[in-house]
Design a protein around this nucleic acid. Structure first.
Lengths: 133, 133
DNA sequence: GACAAATGATACAACAATGGTATCATTTGT
DNA sequence: ACAAATGATACCATTGTTGTATCATTTGTC
């Protein structure tokens, strides 16, 4: 039950590095050598960030990636959404049926509230925030 | 990234029912017929709750389960711990190495704080609370 | 004591999610 | 033309979740 999975963690590290480059293009190769992360996995994940509109990509020789958004507009909750198809801590275990008992629905209400809190917190953490440490 | 998995959900429902029985023994069969849950799975999970000291079990004819603790002493966070071997929302993705970059550790601090908050909330939800809805 | 109804223990299996590989096509600076 | 980069896609290994199956043991009832 990890909040931050590997792909998300890698993505955040990569975004921090790319943000440090100040609009200079950063290639997957450079990121791999700095981060020590499996290259094909990182490449796949960078492509996802590109498709999601977080990164600009330039193909060809001397190509690479740069941020498509300002670092203070890139939020951890968005990265999680990209890699997990939306952020929810509280998917109902019973998708079809209505919850069989009231007690469980009372639980669901609490879990929903916790989920909203976590999402709000994760929306407050941006790449800019992580950089200025 | 579900906070409540099926086994935990089933366990909570079962505990609510058993708590309703007021120290009467409740058998797996009764729980199955009320909850509509796969019997062998429920049985396995009830055994876990027994080993964890949440349930008393009586073998033999007319046997079954009863609560080993008062309903206000059984917390959702404990049930999660039993089925997932401890509650943590924030396992470090890099177990061996220290976190390679400071930004990531700054993230970790935030995630840790969120994890503590969630654990505290889940410790506030007890079987007694769910029943008195 | 025999029997049936219950739990105890344990091993196995199907499925999905996570983490990672491999390959080939395409683009582009030199 | 060539090399260095990304784009697209398919595949694979490991792990966690969600069960199933089996047999042994206990115990109330006849």
């Amino acid at each position: 039950m990890k909040l931050i999975t590997r792909d998300v963690d890698y993505a955040i590290r990569a975004l921090c590095l790319i943000a440090g480059g100040e609009d200079k293009l950063v290639s997957a190769g450079e990121l791999v050598s700095v981060l020590g992360i499996p290259r094909p996995f990182l490449r796949k994940n960078l492509q996802k960030l590109h498709k999601a509109g977080i990164l600009n990509a330039c193909q060809g020789h001397r190509g690479g990636f740069s941020l498509a958004l300002r670092p203070d507009k890139i939020r951890v909750v968005d990265i999680i959404s990209i890699f997990q198809g939306g952020f929810r801590l509280n998917e109902c275990v019973f998708k079809k049926q209505p919850c069989p008992r009231r007690a469980t629905c009372r639980l669901k209400k609490q879990i929903d509230a916790i989920g909203r809190y976590v999402a709000r917190k994760l929306a407050g953490i941006t790449i800019a925030y992580l950089l200025k440490g």
